[in-house]
Write a protein that binds this DNA or RNA. Sequence first.
DNA 1: CTGAAAGCGCTTACAG
DNA 2: CTGAAAGCGCTTACAG
Lengths: 343, 343
Amino acid sequence: MAPVKKSGRITIRTVAEDAGVSVAAVSKVLRDAYGVSEALRTKVRASMSRLGYRPHAAARGMRGQTYTLGFLIPDMRNPFFSDIFAGVNVALERTQYQTLLGVSESATSIEMALIEAMIDRQMDGLIVIGPRMMSQDVMQVAARLPTVLIGHHATPGANFDTVNNDDRLGAELVVQHLAAAGYSHIAYLNQQVTDAEQTMVTTHREIGYRQAMKDAGLGKHIQVFQALQTSRETQGVVRHMLQSRNRPDAIFCWTDFIALEVLSVARELGLSVPGDLAVVGYDNTAYCDLAQNALTSIDQSGQVLGLQAARLLVERIKGRDQAEHFVVTPRLVARASSSPRRP
Amino acid sequence: MAPVKKSGRITIRTVAEDAGVSVAAVSKVLRDAYGVSEALRTKVRASMSRLGYRPHAAARGMRGQTYTLGFLIPDMRNPFFSDIFAGVNVALERTQYQTLLGVSESATSIEMALIEAMIDRQMDGLIVIGPRMMSQDVMQVAARLPTVLIGHHATPGANFDTVNNDDRLGAELVVQHLAAAGYSHIAYLNQQVTDAEQTMVTTHREIGYRQAMKDAGLGKHIQVFQALQTSRETQGVVRHMLQSRNRPDAIFCWTDFIALEVLSVARELGLSVPGDLAVVGYDNTAYCDLAQNALTSIDQSGQVLGLQAARLLVERIKGRDQAEHFVVTPRLVARASSSPRRP
DNA sequence: CTGAAAGCGCTTACAG
DNA sequence: CTGAAAGCGCTTACAG
């Protein structure tokens, strides 16, 4: 008896037999590799679709690529990441690449574990939004596989690409906007982290805020507060800010998410926005547009960031090893939460 | 010359040599399999950690499990999914399993493509939230790999597990709550889909709504509206609802997300909530608690749903083939958006 | 309890 | 341009 096929699985070998060519030829067609005639290519493709062949990712990963990209976000609650992800998908639409997400819950340890898990699973490359790990760890990861960072400002000698908006400029736009609208006691509400680094977007925003305050002659009103990302923590800090003797008349929040909490606390305390307090966010997410929020924010084009990140990553996978850094110009979108004060 | 190690990679073979045992023995330790002595196990583990061994997921996937679970969500904008995901992670914390996310953007075609991609990547099992595919497709997927569905009510003979809250009861709680608070023209704002199925949570909620309206003697005020999930679409439908001759005095929305849009439109039209209009959502997501929303909602314990789904999936992977269906009891959380009417 | 060997489905030099 | 063969790092029967 002839040796029977053991399993029902359609493999590269099944396709090869069906098309009457070698296994190597099928592999080449699969990878769009050089050195196969058009006739053979057509024949193989026909067999593939007739048999309903699906490549086995693990087997490919044993020798070559897995065509899987890892995408790491700090949390699922921030709608801004959804915009970025949409851009990534647009860029990869007509490719063989598939993106798989990981969520680190803003914890360095989970982030590192997820990256290890993605490396174990032979991801071809990594896109990380707002990494929490130290810069040296980032360099180590980037040495192991192609890496693009969004929301992380690279220092010279980086072995990875970055995609950002100009966070200092964004913060400056906010201060200039508020100052022009008649606010002077403008506070900055920053994210609280264990190890602040120069590379973080929040650090850049704080620098831009401080600079713009000085430039506007408001240097003596500079106030920076910090809060962890939990709702309870943020509300506590904000309540404290708003009940203090020198209460700010405007709060600039590092992200929309937090600004919504500020709006909530202000309302609970009976403060009107913007009458008693102006509020500005960052990222211009969908919630800003809701009438109950009407939140002024900085648009940094999440979709563009995602699209560029995916483009850069694919370039890197294809061999580029010189770092590239893409920067988008932020734009302020004014809404009712920061309307000009009555004189 | 002795044959030299070709690459620097630490494999199961490196570990075996280091520990002075066979490759098969190392594999058994790795899989926590039966038939290895405690002494050998200890020795191998020591070598593993000394060498910093990391299992190669693709290679494992060639023969056995990949220890990777697929988790599919319709979109990244709905914060409820984040609660569910948190529960999944709690359940898998001390296991070898790693979850990777896919986002289908509420599109059937993307959902199917993602599932194919996950099968190609040899995921050990799948958790899908609110699947958009037809029930027959669900059955086909479940025939190929262990599957647990959240937010999908199984019909008899299902070859998959489900985890749900009692959506009919949830809707009934809403209607009873609103009726008791003095509202009578209670409308239901449902999700618009191309092929409505009995299995969908929104269908169950509609049934519960209709039943409760009849039971409360409000059968003649039953009104069901539908809108796609985009902000523009929803706002258009809501504006139309609120400007019609027989304007409802309360709107029950199938999810919080949409209820926030209703609050926005009401405010734009100069209607006060709950004075002119009561609004109730579903899922009790974090946004409900913000003072500017103060949205009454149904809590279905996302974290519990996620935890149970992960537990059921691991059981299935380990061999259970009889379907299990876990149901959680919903609970209404009243807030200002549905306060009792003045008599 | 322990290990030698076959094989999972691909890709990659290497001949022809 | 085309194909035979080795090998990627594991797991799985099967002997001992």
